[in-house]
Design a protein around this nucleic acid. Sequence first.
DNA 1: TATTGTTATACTCTATAACTATA
DNA 2: TATAGTTATAGAGTATAACAATA
Lengths: 151, 151
Amino acid sequence: MESLSTATDIADIRGEVTELIKSIGTHMRLRFVSCVAEVGLTPPQAMALLQLSEPISMGNLADELVLDASYITGIADQLEERGLIERRPDPGDRRRKILALTQEGQRVHSGLTGELDVARSPAMDALTDRELIQLRDLLVKVMQALDSESR
Amino acid sequence: MESLSTATDIADIRGEVTELIKSIGTHMRLRFVSCVAEVGLTPPQAMALLQLSEPISMGNLADELVLDASYITGIADQLEERGLIERRPDPGDRRRKILALTQEGQRVHSGLTGELDVARSPAMDALTDRELIQLRDLLVKVMQALDSESR
DNA sequence: TATTGTTATACTCTATAACTATA
DNA sequence: TATAGTTATAGAGTATAACAATA
């Protein structure tokens, strides 16, 4: 009898954990959307801009963001129109174009990075250093289980 | 000097935790999308169907899913065409329509609920009961911090 | 006058297919 | 022949505005 009620409790806690991860993820996403809106960017524009710490070819950017190349063209157009990035020729392959931040792009990039910097987010201030490490270790285990699941 | 390097490490771990929550959230979302696709539903259709354990008015469904009422009309149309739900009049308010599962809808709803049941997901099998409770408690703290942040 | 649901419409995010210039 | 980027287009998800019926 006791084992039965324990099993139920554990199932409940799994459900709680799932809900918590979902809620925290939603919070993070909303925070991202509102941060990028403040600097006048749409989420995909911001995702691309944030990837440009170093210049990168359009194809590579598509790979890193897991987006189709044709979509990257449009995002690049928008960021270029706003003067945040520029397309440079690739010396050595004239098909390729390298995207790089302009000076203004640098400014927005830095501002956004700072704004989003999780280290400055009060989100995890509620945890002591020891708890934070515990949390990290537990999430790593869950993530590993998910990765080996993969079906 | 030691405090400086410690501070950096903690910042790194915060970043790790953020990334982990993002990754686990992505896994969960992909799992949801593939589960609902198996029963031939789009994600919004599934979200609506899963809410129908009990009959509910269209407006209330819109509130619960945080979607506009006009969008609910379309989703309800699709689920009704597939014979999974029906619109019933509300005795007492003739403007209102109550959505309820058909018998076939019941079947799909049960199947999907079982498929998605977190208690049966191997995701958290990597954790002992004690670790699971620890994880829940830590996530609750993070969530509370996020809630009081709210700006 | 306010609320429920519907319609028409439009916008964002994203992919596919066909094309061009280059390799 | 294959690859990088572009264009045109289409589809999913979602919202806004205007409207009809009812409250």
